[in-house]
Design a protein around this nucleic acid. Structure first.
Length: 505
RNA sequence: GGGCCCGUAGCUCAGCGGUAGAGCAGUGCCCUUUUAAGGCAUUGGUCGAAGGUUCAAAUCCUUCCGGGCUCACCA
């Protein structure tokens, strides 16, 4: 939709603007100059107004023309820069005839630079009295600018640019026209910076590991497959960083983390995008208890730094990230929320319970998977406040160490907030013999048709054979963290360019 | 993949059986402190696509394309 075929009405608007471009050149102006020396941002002018007015110093401000209010031989306009909006006032007497002729050829969406002293209008509006005007970029495609008014200090937007598809596809417009969208992505950046600062201050080393991998692993998911031409070989886009980061622990780096993209060839919904940012942290000589301490402290500190408080409101629901968070073993959680005594239930009982809750299971599904299924059905959606669920069944945790008190469980936890899985961690399995058995079991599942079962990685096993110290590992989805801290209902709202089907189907 | 809903001018929307309308943007004229500036005039649409029903379809039916929400699948 909205394709220009050269005859669409939009192209008439573009044609008009291209004609103005010629007219601007005829007046001797360059519509696409190279730079402009900005002395002040819009917010500087407002913050330092008293001083600037008293000194009568000229300021130079650049920005995008968002709205104009013409008055014959004068005009008001609002300029938008990265810090906000500022009114400018252009008067024929002051700018001169040449500049005013240029002004008349400008459109909403053009970038301009202005210089002049600041003043307040009769209505008390801080403005720049434009003495010189420069066109910095001519916009030839009409910008769908909404109308704004300020009433009782509140900014009211009329006819906002709200088509969700267009907002995601043309994110540049969304950013240019919807101020709160810029705020979300500034916050995302602040969150990632805060995470880095938190880990750096604890002597973790940030590293980068391969995205293109000959084998994929570290999670249960289907990968994207690609091909290397010169080597003529199949490669996968990573589904996690885990197996490479643990090789670095073998190498003695002891504390490492990576923030990067993972790719999973799965469905797309409110909390899933095919490529997404993941934080993984590995700490030698630590176990999953230590990783719980680290995770809750990190979440609370990052939230406090970015939003001012560890207590957030997400979609009307208050969420308190202050540590300590409850740590509930999975079987206890199922007893508590689902009222099912797993320890004294037969496999058939568990299968029956899952089916009653709507699960679609293959016959003969192993017990550990049934327990995990039961947990996801009856507990997960109820975990709104941050909670650690600990001690996962062995069957669903092929990279986690067996629980020190119960060999059918692992020392693994996941973080749940708002009913989502927000993190995953374990005491990392470093026994190479046990690890090989787990991989082999995964491969047998794969042979039975489970295309998400993990793949045996011989080099990873070799690394484990050389020896990895006891290690705690933690993975945290950055997108979900950002959703929570920016009160965004969809992961698409925190990804600048979320996955969309191509235009023209 | 299932269910519900949507796709009409550049943007935001109304029209829901008699062959298209508003506001904003655009264009022209007036206006040298306005702020959703204002006044007068005006351009602009094969109503997502293709079939069908009908004397007549933006409007009803079918299919397709794209999207939103939701359930399922999925970390």
């Amino acid at each position: 939709m909205n394709q220009d075929d050269g005859h669409a009405p939009e192209s008439k608007l573009i044609e008009q603007r291209l004609q103005k471009l010629d007219a601007i050149r005829d007046l001797g102006h360059t519509p696409y100059p190279y730079s402009f020396d900005v002395t002040h941002l819009s917010s500087d002018v407002i913050d330092q107004f008293e001083k600037l007015e008293a000194s009568e110093d000229e300021v130079a401000v650049a920005g995008r023309l968002m709205v104009t209010r013409g008055h014959g031989k004068a005009a008001f306009a609002d300029l938008s820069d990265r810090k906000g909006r500022l009114q400018i006032y252009i008067k024929l007497d002051v700018v001169g005839a040449d500049a005013f002729d240029l002004w008349k050829l400008l459109d909403i969406g053009d970038f301009i630079g202005v210089r002049g002293p600041v003043f307040k209008t009769r209505m008390g509006q801080i403005s720049i009295q434009v003495k010189t005007l420069e066109l910095l970029t001519k916009s030839v495609r009409p910008l769908p600018v909404p109308k704004e008014e300020v009433k009782d200090g509140e900014r009211i937007v009329h006819d906002a640019f709200s088509d969700k598809e267009l907002r995601y596809r043309r994110r540049y417009l969304d950013l240019a026209l919807n101020a709160d969208v810029q705020d979300v992505f500034r916050k995302r950046s602040a969150i990632v910076s805060a995470v880095r600062a938190f880990l750096d201050s604890r002597d973790f080393l940030e590293v980068e590991t391969p995205v293109l991998q000959t084998l994929y692993g570290g999670a249960s998911a289907r990968p994207f497959v690609t091909h290397h031409n010169t080597l003529d070989m199949q490669l996968y886009l990573r589904i996690s960083d885990e197996l490479y980061l643990k090789r670095l622990i073998v190498g003695g780096l002891e504390r490492v983390y990576e923030i990067g993209k993972d790719f999973r060839n799965e469905g797309v919904d409110r909390t899933h995008n095919p490529e997404f940012s993941m934080l993984e942290v590995y700490q030698a000589y630590a176990d999953y208890h230590d990783m719980m301490d680290l995770a809750e402290t990190m979440y609370a500190e990052v939230a406090t730094q970015v939003t001012g408080s560890p207590v957030l409101t997400y979609q009307g629901q208050e969420i308190d990230l202050s540590p300590p968070w409850p740590r509930i073993p999975m079987l206890e959680a199922i007893a508590q929320y689902g009222d099912i005594d797993v320890a004294n239930a037969s496999d058939a009982d568990l299968e029956g319970a899952c089916k009653r809750l709507g699960a679609d299971l293959d016959p003969g599904t192993e017990r550990g998977i049934l327990i995990n299924e039961l947990f996801e059905l009856c507990v997960e959606p109820k975990l709104i406040q941050p909670t650690f669920i600990t001690d996962y069944p062995l069957a669903v945790s092929p990279l986690a160490k067996k629980h020190r008190d119960n060999p059918e469980l692992t020392e693994r936890f996941e973080i749940f907030v708002n009913g989502w899985e927000a993190g995953n961690a374990f005491s990392e399995l470093n026994d190479p013999v046990d690890q090989r058995e787990r991989f082999e079991h995964q491969m047998s599942l794969r042979d039975k048709g489970d295309d998400e079962a993990q793949v045996l990685d011989e080099d990873y096993l070799r690394a484990m054979e050389y020896g990895m110290p006891p290690t705690g590992g933690l993975g945290v989805g950055i997108g979900r963290m950002v959703m929570l801290m920016t009160d965004s209902p969809s992961i698409r709202d925190v990804i600048l360019f979320p996955h969309m089907r191509p235009e023209e189907g």
